[in-house]
Design a protein around this nucleic acid. Structure first.
Lengths: 138, 138
DNA sequence: TATTGTTATACTCTATAACTATA
DNA sequence: TATAGTTATAGAGTATAACAATA
């Protein structure tokens, strides 16, 4: 693994660029970054406690409460007490939540594709494959 | 560019993992993240005003002042008024600063290599090449 | 007593705007 | 007046701990 710049030194600015591209998209849809993260997690695996959800998206359980309030007020998720254990709130994404999530996703991918266009098709596929491997291996 | 997870959703946790790996290394060498960033920038292109340096590492000029104070106190950089324009501070890395920077760099690369080991040699080279392209294209 | 969700508090980062010293 | 560096202030984001309801 010959001489190379630090990984983080290349990745960090890249992430900042991506976030800068995505914030306007999120603002248009009136969803926060954490809100989008929650919608994505719920769309992929529906029922969960809030603590498990927080864990899944790398946040503290206390940190996502405001986000959940907003999403619920906007009708994008449902949060109902579990009859079996009334301490627990069962979480699920609504039809509209799913619609919003997919719309944001499409728009974000369009932005990302502008960046990925710097690579050839072959390079791009190799990059994304490696990235997935690293992401899943964590 | 077929169906795939969001780029940021994969990159962001990866960066967090990297930072978590690197913080102990930095702490051992008694250098902050910004401090290391400054040393790296100065080691690669020596003379600069503080504002230009801040710009180069993606920080605000007011934000790096504490960092520069620390580095100077530790003897890792020099900060001397420019005789030609006494508003300006000429910045340079010291021999010891260069030594520390390289030592940190080696240790960080060792940590990073543990992550990159999840990839085959071919994948790793393709990944790093693509990453460089994206980093430089920004 | 332990756990889920919630609220409150303190702490760190960051951005902005004043301030000084030079030009 | 404008610029380089500095300091001060306020705001956002985050982590931690305390709290109420339920088990």
């Amino acid at each position: 693994m010959s001489d190379r710049p630090d990984l983080a030194a290349m990745l960090y600015p890249l992430v900042r660029t991506l976030i800068a591209l995505e914030l306007p998209v999120l603002a248009e849809h009136e969803v926060s970054m954490w809100g989008y993260s929650v919608l994505t997690a719920l769309d992929e695996t529906p029922v969960r406690t809030q603590a498990a959800l927080a864990e899944a998206i790398g946040a503290d359980k206390s940190r996502i409460i405001g986000t959940l309030d907003e999403l619920q007020d906007a009708g994008l998720i449902e949060r109902t007490p579990d009859p079996a254990d009334r301490r627990v709130r069962l979480l699920s994404i609504t039809t509209q939540g799913r619609r919003i999530r997919r719309s944001v996703r499409r728009a974000i991918h369009l932005q990302e594709d502008r960046l990925l266009a710097k690579l050839t098709r072959i390079e791009r596929e190799a990059f994304l494959r490696a990235l997935r491997t690293l992401h899943e291996a964590r």
